[in-house]
Design a protein around this nucleic acid. Structure first.
Length: 584
RNA sequence: GGUCCCUUAGCUCAACUGGAUAGAGCAGCCGACUUCUAAUCGGCAGGCUGAGGGUUCGAGUCCUUCAGGGACCGCCA
């Protein structure tokens, strides 16, 4: 369905024909032959590097190959011209009927843009996975938006996607949560809370304390920690997960499943994952060297159980058990990823915050070892979000318990704006989030700019309907698209033709931000065409007059902009943004 | 000290994974509203892609050295 892939097939067929005729040596490797849009549109619609790639192995001059290939390609009715240029590029210009056909396809084929790239293979995207110790903050928000859009993108590209949240409910931090909640419980019971250094001070635990009082009355007061810790931990963790689920809901993020770290303990699953590594000779007892340069003051050599991650690309071996014999956080992570592999996923993706960059190599090493290098793990890091308000940086202090939450952001600017804006930077670049600018209704704001393009299309559709035109899908499907012939109109159609290709590029690189950039570009082409109608009445989408020819022209133009709207809607939906039909 | 990420126009960022003369948007200057929403558009100007070396037909992109910024670096997750 990707037009560029289609033409590439045509190029390869022509090359095969040339080989058969002896114009080229047989058996050339064609993997590097590409058909791409040229950087400069003046060069044509598509360009192929075939001649340059093949020149050396064929022992021929690139221009000679290119000219022979050009002669073969112009026989194809879709190819209007093929010109050799530069060092041996072959520039192709396609017949307008090709672009008109794209418009028809975008209107009539519900799977336009969808790709079969994934071939139904199973991929898991693990994202957010924030500790269940408090509400989600802006950093989590970026990971949530990125992971969610990536999952939708992969789904659109033909993967069988599972979205999962890993709940870190097994470590020491949930004990801290329990103790913090207990102080709020004492507070609810009329005692003065003692929120000492190291406990979570946030107000969000106040309702948890009250709920505890409702559940237990004052029976826990004065009791030893051993008595209540496990129960309170479970209760508070569940409360926090309710909070987090509600936060995700507010952002329109829907997980397929939540996976509990705690569920791995006491079941032998951590042990068996480590056992798997041991079977491969990757577990040993040893002592690590101290980190160089930086000398921790309390450092002393201790023997630990280590994973020989260096065998799978890591820089140093990593401990899976502490010197006292208990597991490190890494051990359940290994077990969890072993579980992912066991569940039959063909590919894994983890979305982490940039502060977890240090775990990338060891996690990849673990998955590589446990899947015998069969299951690729891609780890995407999302960089920091810098908040701005009134032109000044908005400071966050997690320590003091006042940090900007996901809820703060969504309540102020809305889920759609938040999501789109979070995707206007690639994941590994820092992102500025300015509360004033993201809600601005002007072309300076990409969210608005794209939404406005879609709204303008629907404005025309409403006007056309008011004028008595039939603009149903069937009517538009019957439009005479050969009337879309002006260069400015074809530019828009050509950009629509990029959509299926863009999906594949974005999906291959796990880069949903490309969709946001593309939509901005498509909206720009649309706005440009709209304004051309001011100077040139023949380019107005909805022309005055009752003549049959006038009506037919309008119908064709409306088909074009309707197709634009279809692509914008699909793109926004992948990003998780609602396409609006009116700006009011 | 080590590992990873980053450095592109005055500013914020792209560049389709190695392609042709490196592109947008802000900011600056000039221009377009009896209109399907000017909430928009057109034009001008702006560059030694942090610095050096290498790989090849061809490098912002790959390898290497260096400089600057950020994240992380056993017994927290």
């Amino acid at each position: 369905m990707n037009l560029f892939a289609d033409i590439r097939e045509t190029v390869l067929a022509a090359l095969a024909q040339m080989e058969a005729e002896g114009a080229l040596p047989a058996g050339l490797a064609t993997a590097a032959v590409a058909v791409e849009p040229p950087r400069d549109a003046a060069h044509g619609d598509m360009a192929t590097n075939a001649a340059m790639v093949l020149a050396k192995p064929a022992g021929m001059k690139p221009r000679d190959i290119a000219e022979a290939l050009a002669a073969a390609l112009v026989d194809d009715p879709r190819i209007q011209s093929a010109d050799v240029a530069g060092p041996g590029f072959l520039n192709l210009r396609l017949d307008p009927t090709v672009w008109q056909g794209v418009v028809a396809k975008a209107l009539g084929d519900p799977s336009f843009g969808r790709s079969t790239l994934g071939q139904g293979r199973k991929v898991m995207v693990e994202y957010v996975s924030a500790n269940p110790t408090g509400p989600l903050h802006v950093g989590h928000t970026r990971g949530a938006v990125f992971g969610d859009a990536l999952a939708s993108l992969l789904d659109y590209a033909g993967w069988d996607v599972t979205r999962e949240y890993y709940i870190n409910d097994g470590g020491a931090q949930v004990d801290v949560l329990a103790r913090s909640a207990f102080e709020r419980y004492r507070e609810a019971c009329g005692q003065a809370p003692e929120i000492v250094e190291g406990l979570y001070p946030g107000d969000y635990l106040v309702p948890v304390g009250e709920a505890m009082k409702a559940k237990w009355g004052d029976t826990l007061l004065g009791q030893d920690e051993q008595v209540w810790l496990a129960d309170v931990r479970e209760f508070a963790t569940a409360q926090m997960m309710d909070l987090i689920r509600a936060d995700l809901d507010a952002l329109n993020v829907q997980m397929d499943s939540f996976y509990s770290e705690k569920s791995l303990y006491g079941t032998g699953r951590i042990e068996s994952a480590i056992e798997e590594l041991d079977k491969r000779g990757l577990i040993y007892r040893g002592t690590l060297e101290p980190p160089k340069g930086k000398v921790p003051e309390d450092w002393e050599p201790r023997e630990q159980v280590l994973f020989k991650s260096t065998e799978h690309g890591d820089d140093v071996d990593r401990p899976v058990a502490k010197s006292d014999g208990s597991w490190t956080y890494f051990a359940p992570d290994i077990a969890y990823h072993y579980d992912k592999v066991s569940r039959g996923f063909d590919a894994l993706i983890d979305v982490f915050g940039a502060d977890h960059g240090g775990y990338v190599k060891r996690m990849k090493a673990a998955v590589s070892a446990l899947s015998d290098s069969k299951v690729p793990l891609d780890i995407k890091l999302t960089q920091l979000v810098k908040l701005w308000k009134n032109g000044e940086p908005f400071k966050m202090s997690k320590r003091a318990g006042n940090f900007v939450t996901l809820r703060d952001v969504v309540d102020q600017v809305g889920a759609d704006v938040t999501r789109f804006h979070m995707l206007t930077r690639k994941n590994d670049a820092p992102l500025d989030f300015d509360f004033d600018k993201v809600t601005e209704q002007s072309k300076d704001n990409p969210v608005f700019y794209v939404q406005y393009a879609n709204a303008r299309v629907h404005s025309v559709l409403r006007k056309a309907a008011d004028a008595g035109m039939d603009i149903s899908d069937t009517a538009l499907g019957g439009a005479d698209l050969s009337l879309i012939a002006h260069e400015a109109e074809l530019t828009l159609a050509k950009n629509i033709a990029q959509w299926p290709r863009l999906i594949e590029i974005a999906a291959k690189g796990n880069e949903p931000h490309r969709i946001a950039f593309y939509l901005y570009d498509l909206a720009s082409d649309f706005h440009a065409l709209w304004n051309r109608g001011n100077d040139d009445p023949s380019l107005r989408f909805l022309a005055d007059g009752d003549a049959e020819a006038t009506k037919a022209a309008s119908l064709a133009k409306i088909a074009l902009i309707r197709a634009t709207s279809v692509v914008i809607s699909q793109g926004l939906s992948i990003l998780g943004v609602t396409p609006v039909e009116e700006m009011r």
